[in-house]
Design a binder for these strands. Structure first.
Lengths: 229, 229
DNA sequence: CTGATCAATTGATATAGATCAATGACACTA
DNA sequence: TAGTGTCATTGATCTATATCAATTGATCAG
């Protein structure tokens, strides 16, 4: 863990919102920061638990999901390096409103919410960037709401595949560590429906599926399917 | 329109996030502010249009909804006096990501996003309050996502009724100007399903419905129905 | 008063997708 | 090597809810 000893000032894995901080401010962050690594499947924080720290993902992949009754989940986002997890409860009730779990081997830096909020107050550029990030999260939630509410299975599946390839993995083909259930939880369907939808796309030569590797062959078609719902 | 000439400094209808501003700052707001009134059904801004102003609702009631394909809508919130409409695009792409329509006769103050963002930068308390408000919006969206995705019609209807009574109108019984279609758009169902769900609740003596007035008779039962989905 | 318009209601029908159940495919271990 | 657990796959139902169609009020203009 060479990075363990790296000072935030020299850290190359700085989330972009930190680029505007001066050395003094980064010093404060460095002093309170705790570095952690998580194995695949390990929980970083749980919905409902007290929110003491902001989490910056420096390597790996984290999935964030809302837990409902009866083990029902909704995955609201994935966080990749170098990006913060914005837990909205930090400014409201000091509780996490969703659960974060490491999908792959993941390292993070935890920064105390007190220090973080101090920075928001003292550095207006930082505050501005922070607000932009939360705004983006809001826009994404709106998007997900329409995807789940207004579209049928094929549309939702198409959108999910495009999102995985273009936003989460930024690759095509991409190899994911997500189960069929995870994909189902991204767009409010069952794992069986995911299997059937993938099979349909496969039969129509829109994608190929080989284990956990999915190749999107006809992206315009997927976009059309996603659009018409 | 007596308020037309009132200076922000003396305005009693100040949104709480403005309470921390000094006279100089309020002066800036006052100088750029435009006061508008809208008749019921009139549009305040439309999804996709440029976002030049923040909107503070000083009287009336505004519904905000995402527009999908084929006239499909999702109502993501209602804004009552004295509360801001937080349009997340202001910090991202300068576009509105949902539409706002006056439900009742409504007056608003429009404040230029430039001035607003200046205030966020210059006044850390203001920034802090603003972030708290956006965070709340995010939490509400998460809540709505679970309500729509994880619950069946009775649960969604129960939750919607509780929300109307406890959050939007803060009355029981309450008289709303919303159509059945509006209620349907709050929780992703059809207007026919709303009618049937209301009828079921009425038959079970959980509520009474008289035109646009709804009385929640058995709130614990509604909470149970909402919880079990 | 009389169509005309629009929302609410009700009933009949269709269907998308959930649920249930069985099987297959691996990985792991004892 | 058999045994166990987990996940993916497939097929056979079932059902919640959308859709479609018809009726009833209510409101409004002339």
């Amino acid at each position: 863990m060479k990075q363990e000893n790296t000072h935030c000032i020299h850290c190359r894995n700085k989330s972009d919102i930190f680029s505007g901080l001066n050395d003094l401010e980064l010093g404060k962050v460095n002093d309170c920061r705790v570095r952690m690594t998580y194995a695949p499947g390990e929980m970083i924080f749980k919905q409902g638990s007290p929110c003491h720290d902001f989490v910056c993902v420096t390597s790996g992949l984290v999935k964030c999901f809302i837990e409902g009754e009866d083990d029902k989940k909704i995955i609201i986002g994935f966080v990749r390096p170098i990006e913060y997890i914005f837990s909205p409860g930090a400014y409201i009730d000091k509780r996490h409103h969703f659960t974060a779990i490491a999908c792959e081997e993941t390292s993070v830096c935890l920064v105390s919410t007190d220090v973080f909020q101090e920075l928001v107050k003292s550095n207006s550029e930082f505050a501005n960037d922070f607000i932009a990030k939360i705004s983006l999260q809001t826009i994404n939630l709106c998007h997900q709401l329409t995807n789940i509410t207004h579209k049928q299975i094929p549309g939702r599946m198409a959108e999910t595949l495009l999102r995985l390839s273009q936003v989460v993995y930024k690759q095509n083909p991409f190899t994911s560590c997500l189960s069929r259930q995870d994909m189902a939880d991204m767009c409010g369907m069952t794992k069986e429906s995911v299997v059937r939808a993938l099979k349909t796309f496969k039969d129509e030569n829109i994608i190929t599926v080989d284990g956990n590797t999915i190749h999107l062959l006809n992206i315009p078609m997927l976009e059309t399917i996603s659009k018409i719902g």
